[in-house]
């Protein structure tokens, strides 16, 4: 009995040490970025482990004014917001109908969207870019329109929304499927149209999974950069991530560390705030799609 007790204590100690080490490996680098963002440039050439000497908030002003972060920040907000709006307006009705109505071709569409989950956006970056640039060339030749599809924030948002449709429809459908049929039947008896039933009865009931979709896709759109980098060559249209990537590459030559870390804090903060607000929803929402073991 005694030996097993010391065994348990030993085991617990080892686990705590392992857990704390892993936690530190996350807290230290992230915290370090926050500290580095208020360091003066000269401090970067000394021991990286020293704390900042003072609160050098000039970095943030420089990042916003000199490195154009305010512009990028605004662009990111615009693209993320429009993409989320597109996604919800398009995916919600589709998910609802696909999961609760029987019609011709329904099975085929369900299979298509299901397969779409496994198609990765990373494969499609270049094909989508070329498709849009060809469309631009065509428009230029036939109508004399300069550039419509590339360097267009609305188009970028639409591509974001379209490429996350499959997963979103899957997530929402599996929730709609669990709702009982009685609600719709009652609504029809009361003479509500299909559209009204959907918008004012079924959508409000799907709130938890809609919230999950918004959370996940906000993070995905806000942090995305491979597509944004390829489709938006115009520096005025850069999103925050692309702007930061540029700053990172420039930093190797120009040594504007302070601005870079200030920029990193700016890109992290919104996601952190969101995470703190809805941390429970986010870590539990992962199973909302029915990936139960």
């Amino acid at each position: 009995m005694k030996s097993s007790k010391t065994g348990i204590i030993l085991g617990k100690t080892i686990t705590y040490i392992a857990l704390v080490l892993l936690a530190l490996s996350i807290i230290v680098p992230v915290g370090w970025v926050f500290f580095a963002s208020v360091k003066e440039n000269s401090e970067f050439y000394r021991n990286p482990w020293t704390l900042p000497k003072g609160f050098h908030y000039q970095n943030f002003i420089d990042a916003f004014e000199k490195a154009n972060m305010q512009n990028f920040f605004l662009n990111s907000i615009i693209v993320t917001a429009i993409a989320l709006a597109f996604l919800l307006v398009i995916a919600l009705p589709a998910a609802y109908v696909l999961s609760r109505y029987k019609f011709k071709g329904q099975k085929f569409l369900n299979v298509c969207f299901m397969a779409g989950i496994f198609v990765n956006l990373s494969y499609l970056v270049v094909p989508i870019f070329l498709m849009l640039s060809e469309a631009d060339k065509f428009l230029g030749k036939t109508f004399g329109i300069k550039q419509l599809f590339l360097n267009n924030q609305v188009v970028l948002s639409l591509v974001y929304a379209s490429t996350s449709l499959a997963f979103t429809i899957f997530l929402l459908s599996s929730y709609f499927k669990t709702l009982p049929k009685d609600f719709e039947e009652a609504a029809y008896v009361d003479g509500a149209t299909y559209f009204r039933t959907m918008v004012s009865i079924m959508f409000p009931m799907a709130k938890p999974s809609i919230l999950t979709v918004i959370l996940f896709q906000f993070l995905a759109y806000w942090n995305e950069y491979a597509l944004a980098l390829t489709l938006m060559a115009d520096e005025k249209k850069y999103t925050l991530s692309v702007g930061l990537l540029n700053l990172m590459n420039a930093q190797k030559a120009a040594a504007t560390y302070g601005q870079l870390y200030a920029g990193l804090v700016v890109v992290m903060l919104p996601t952190f705030i969101l995470y703190m607000l809805v941390q429970k929803q986010l870590t539990q929402g992962m199973t909302a799609g029915g990936v139960k073991g």
Binding site: N223, M248, M268, T271, F272, Y275
Partner: peptide, 9 residues
């Protein structure tokens, strides 16, 4: 929840 840009930086 971190962007890959942040992680790589």
């Amino acid at each position: 929840i971190l962007s890959m840009v942040v992680i790589s930086a």
